[in-house]
Amino acid sequence: MSPSFKAGAREGFRVCLPVSVGLVPWALVTGLAMVSAGFTPVQAMGMSFIVFGATAQLGTLPLIAIGAPWWLILATALVVNLRFLIFSAALAGPLAGGTLLQRWLCGYLLTDGVFATCLERLRSDADPVWRLGYYLAPSLWCALVWQSSTLTGVLAAGAIPRGWSLEFMASIALLVLLVPMARVRPMLVAMLTGGVLSVLLRGLPLRLGVMAAIVAGIAAGFATEHLQKKAEAR
């Protein structure tokens, strides 16, 4: 491992530590949910390693439980994962220095938290090896935290009282990420648009409302940036 990979890895690990804390309750809940859908511990951990995506796992569980057709399960999983296309496109340039195997690994490990935390530095740092370390180290750490917490949830199913609402720590972690972004005006507009529309469109099937809200939020942020530039030019 080169010194520059190690330096990137250390920095990435440091900035993503709070995000990984927020994964713990979420993974516990996902573990509990899979067992309560009727999976054996081996099946639950199998799904956790094959899919490694909370939204896709939690979104398809009810469909699996009622014996829905395979194409409906597949379509649901694809729709909730569409956001990753956007994230992957944003990461393609910064991670282009990795080998093919490393890039498949980067893809498998792509999570919302690491993406949101690391994107800005990944786009600005000039050293491709540093960037790879800065992305891979926290991603591997988050996967480790995720899988061990899921296993804990699977094994502890039934013993943790639901009244504790520990899954709310995942929401707190997302808020911790959002606050510093909100200091830039167009980002704040993107956020408000995405958040409000997601609530208003919650009735749409297959969680399409979330997708629509994200796309509208991005458009609103982009438009605000445009208007700001025009105003400055005057």
């Binding site: 956001r83 956007i86 994230f87 919302d112 949101a116 959002l178 995405g194 958040g195 991005i218 609103a220």
Partner: peptide, 8 residues
């Protein structure tokens, strides 16, 4: 703007 919009 994707992360801000998506996380919100």
């Amino acid at each position: 703007y994707a992360p801000a919009a998506a996380l919100a």
